[in-house]
């Protein structure tokens, strides 16, 4: 029970990060491998605001979200749109965007290393015990989970019950047909990319309240987010959430029963099982 709840709490934040990546990959069609670095940058921002100005991470995210939205929107417009225009096929865009975002991720790691150094950073915020169904948990984990639930829920409602959300889902399903029915794909793809980046950075700020991060851990989170997106099915919000919770639980199981150093191996086992048995994702439909 203890493991189950800890896993769920972790999975909630994972869901947020994977949602960010899913918006970028499912809608903007950019396999953003700098996603984890955006997360770490969000974590850094929260850390810095808290240690320098005693500002709660839960307030920082209100500043962080618009800032990273603009930043990611600019990244898409300046760096990635030329690639989208240049690409002759989906495969070429994938290769190009993988290389470009890899470059971006290394540049970001390099910059963060020179600004903050290579040390681990963490801070103590809301590190009080709280009792849920007989077991004790850290309050910061619970608070981060609740914040993630609120943001995920808002995103879900927005995607499913607004006109912009409908257009975005249309692009995720059929980018070429979306253009035919008068959806401004370029504009919305940039929007989705920016939004995805902002969601990821907020997820990073929430994670930093209870996890220790350093400048070069980003790639691990990129990997986990990618695995979640593939497990849940590309462009599928519900699947992403289920997959994220599943990964959170499995990781916590492995960490507490076997060895904390094997979390990535756990994620990979799930990944392989999905690839072998349900390559279209947990909730995805079989391609016709």
């Amino acid at each position: 029970m203890d493991i189950l709840i800890t896993g769920l709490l972790l999975g909630g934040t994972y869901a947020l990060i994977a949602m960010g990546l899913n918006l970028q990959y499912g809608v903007a069609r950019i396999m953003n491998l700098a996603n984890g670095e955006m997360l770490v940058a969000g974590g850094f921002a929260a850390f810095w605001m808290y240690t320098a100005g005693q500002i709660s991470p839960f307030l920082t995210i209100f500043l962080l979200a618009p800032l990273t939205f603009v930043l990611n929107w600019l990244i898409y417009r300046i760096m990635l749109q030329p690639l989208v225009k240049r690409a002759k096929s989906r495969g070429q865009l994938e290769t190009d965007s993988i290389l470009a975002t890899f470059g971006l991720s290394f540049v970001m790691v390099g910059l963060m290393l020179s600004v903050f150094g290579g040390d681990y950073f963490n801070y103590s915020y809301l590190a009080r015990p709280i009792v849920i169904v007989g077991d004790t948990f850290a309050l910061n984990r619970v608070a981060a989970f609740l914040a993630a639930v609120v943001i995920c829920g808002a995103l879900y409602l927005w995607l499913n019950h607004s006109r912009a959300g409908l257009s975005i889902r249309a692009i995720a399903v059929a980018p070429d047909s979306a253009r035919l029915v008068g959806i401004n794909v370029t504009h919305l793809a940039a929007l989705a990319f920016g939004l995805g980046g902002a969601v990821t950075a907020v997820g990073g700020a929430l994670l930093s309240t209870y996890l220790t991060l350093d400048a070069s851990t980003g790639v691990i989170f990129t990997l986990k987010a990618l695995i979640i997106v593939i497990m849940g099915g590309v462009g599928d919000v519900r699947g992403t959430i289920i997959a994220a919770l599943l990964l959170g639980i499995v990781e916590t199981l492995v960490a507490s029963l076997l060895d904390p150093g094997l979390t990535l191996a756990a994620a990979y086992t799930l990944f392989i099982l999905i690839l072998l048995f349900r390559p279209q994702g947990l909730c995805g439909k079989k391609p016709t």
Binding site: D96, A100, G103, F106, V107, M108, V109, G110, L113
Partner: peptide, 12 residues
């Protein structure tokens, strides 16, 4: 790390 990133971007 920075060099590696810049090299990737130059190639693309």
């Amino acid at each position: 790390t920075l060099l590696l990133g810049v090299a990737f971007l130059i190639i693309v």
